[in-house]
Computed example of a mutant assay.
Amino acid sequence: MTNSIEITKAKTSKIQDVDFENLSFGKIFTDHMFTCDFKNGEWQKPEITPYAPLTLDPSARVFHYGQAVFEGMKAYKDDAGKIWLFRPEDNLARINKSAERLAMPAFPHDLFMEGLKKLINIDEDWVKPGFGNSLYIRPFVIATEPAIAASPALEYKFLIICSPAQSYYSGDVRVLVAEQFSRSANGGVGFAKAAGNYAAQFYPTSLANQEGFQQIIWTDADTHEYLEEAGTMNVFFRINDTLITAPTSERILDGITRKSIIQIAKDADINVEIRPIKVSEIVEASKNGSLKEIFGSGTAAVVSPISAFSHKGELFEVPKQDDKYSDKFKNLLNGIQYNTLEDPYGWRQSI
């Protein structure tokens, strides 16, 4: 494998046709993409080419056995026009951890960082300044070997595509606590960003949507007694002035925003408990008035407040707070990401 990236630029740009004031998340893509094939036991020469459809054999193993993993990350532009990434090495570590669980090859660190930065530099005009504006970055790996035997593929394709984004969620979110369906189970792939994890969520989430809820708070597969994740996000609970979140495990994604919030909270002398949380504990806290906040955390939304949850047919409203932890965390994270605040952690990287 060579680290020399072959670059072919688009003859014309699509950017003049994009209404950046009215973006639908994940539907518009930049002019270029990064690709690299894995063949004969090693990664081949990487390329940056004009964004275009792929041609795959109908027997490509990704279609039959689901060997597909991905990441979600963002680039931000400050008021001086400089572009920043947020903890990109963590994204690479996680996609490689996901790949390992699905018997897929790891992608080299240096090549990932070089390809990512060159791709964003080429499409830098797509990164708009201002809070809420960002470039959503989707690295992913798929099995491309044309064979339908039930075994790991010998050929893969690593890609990075980018999509301009605005604020992902608007307003508070109402959630349904899962009592029947499960997101993941012990010994499974819940900790991995495997494509199939998300496909399996769509049906129960659509049922929740029909009942007027935007998302589900997932519970453990064995007993449905313990709270785990909210939709595609990690979830936090504030009881009085204590912040509580479930520990990461083979069922729960090791969220990068989650880790960042925990660090920020601890540095702000907020009591943080990382432990299993029973549904009954949150129900009781809601009834006795000690439940102050519930919010999800993730790359797309950063922090998403939850205004109500339903369990066993009973709706519990989360009271509005003047001094919300969720607002503090989002403002601090955005300040680091957009280079308006100091970054004492070294999370921010320039392009």
Rank of each mutant, 00 (worst) to 15 (best):
F191Q: 15
E314D: 00
A150Y: 02
W84G: 09
E71M: 01
L227M: 08
K259L: 11
I239T: 12
A301G: 12
V235Y: 12
G298F: 02
N209D: 10
L291N: 07
L135P: 03
L85W: 01
A99N: 13
D90A: 14
V69R: 04
E89Q: 05
P58Y: 03
E317D: 13
Q166R: 11
E21V: 03
K128M: 07
L154V: 14
N133F: 00
E317K: 15
A150C: 08
Y338G: 07
Q321Y: 05
K324L: 10
Q214F: 08
K287Q: 12
S280C: 00
K266V: 07
S182C: 14
T299I: 14
N331C: 05
R87E: 08
E100C: 11
K77Y: 05
C162L: 06
F309M: 06
P164S: 10
P139N: 12
N91Y: 07
S170D: 11
G115E: 00
P344L: 04
K312G: 02
A147K: 15
P53S: 09
F202C: 14
N234S: 07
N271Q: 14
V189K: 13
N334L: 13
F20T: 00
E155S: 15
Q215R: 03
E100A: 14
P319F: 02
S286F: 08
I48W: 12
V235M: 14
T55G: 11
S350M: 07
Q44P: 13
L243R: 09
P344S: 10
D37I: 09
S59I: 10
K312M: 04
A268D: 09
T55P: 06
I336T: 04
T144W: 08
E314K: 05
F86P: 02
T30S: 06
L54S: 10
K9S: 10
T257M: 02
P164L: 06
G255D: 12
Q210T: 08
E211P: 07
Y338R: 11
E6M: 08
K278H: 09
Q337E: 13
Y169P: 01
